[in-house]
Nucleic acid binder design. Sequence first.
DNA 1: GCTATAGTTCGATGCTCGTCGTACTGAACG
DNA 2: CGTTCAGTACGACGAGCATCGAACTATAGC
Lengths: 106, 106
Amino acid sequence: MSLAVADPAEVGAVGPLSLPAVLHALSDPVRLSIVSQLADGAEHTCNSLDVTVAKSTCSHHFRVLREAGVVSQRADGKCRFNRLEVEALEASFPGLLDAVLRTSQR
Amino acid sequence: MSLAVADPAEVGAVGPLSLPAVLHALSDPVRLSIVSQLADGAEHTCNSLDVTVAKSTCSHHFRVLREAGVVSQRADGKCRFNRLEVEALEASFPGLLDAVLRTSQR
DNA sequence: GCTATAGTTCGATGCTCGTCGTACTGAACG
DNA sequence: CGTTCAGTACGACGAGCATCGAACTATAGC
């Protein structure tokens, strides 16, 4: 069964946005790279990103980012488009994303 | 012997200040609380902080923060005074500390 | 010299995490 | 219907981590 209710790792996991969870999600180099690549504002599929890990590992990292509320996912046909949750992050932790991206993108 | 050379967890661990390491150091609730309490700019000893963990655990957390370059330590008699490395953090990751403190202090 | 105090170090323990390959699901396209 | 493609779920494995108590070091005070 899969009725698309509020799964823990559902697409737009709208939780209280815990700061430790967000910081932990950003503390992994692979996830930091993902977030960095997602920062162009466009939607990306898992495959369209430049990651050096296996597919399942990539899926795991997206799950962590999703559960922390850092990214959201939208299914469209075969693909799942991922988006940085810029507004939600900015609302909860103003300036945090900017500070992280400023140094990780360079 | 202890000639005060460059130990890995020396007082003023001046490394390249890795962003993942800093984020990981800040991603633990206990350490976040420590940093938050250190944010008044004053120096604190381990004992003068309000932490709920054992002494050895506290020492461990300070070590992690030290190795990430988030805090530095100064020995004076029996006590070790800890300081937030505001300048170093601001130089490496401008705005990051502010963004973290703004939401964790409230 | 003893004792109290502040912190570190040292196992030990149990949990979490990052990684992988494989199996699975679900959609598109013949 | 069968196949391919995108992504997830499931173990499994090794490493790291948070936690503790106990032993240790070093300083200060008596």
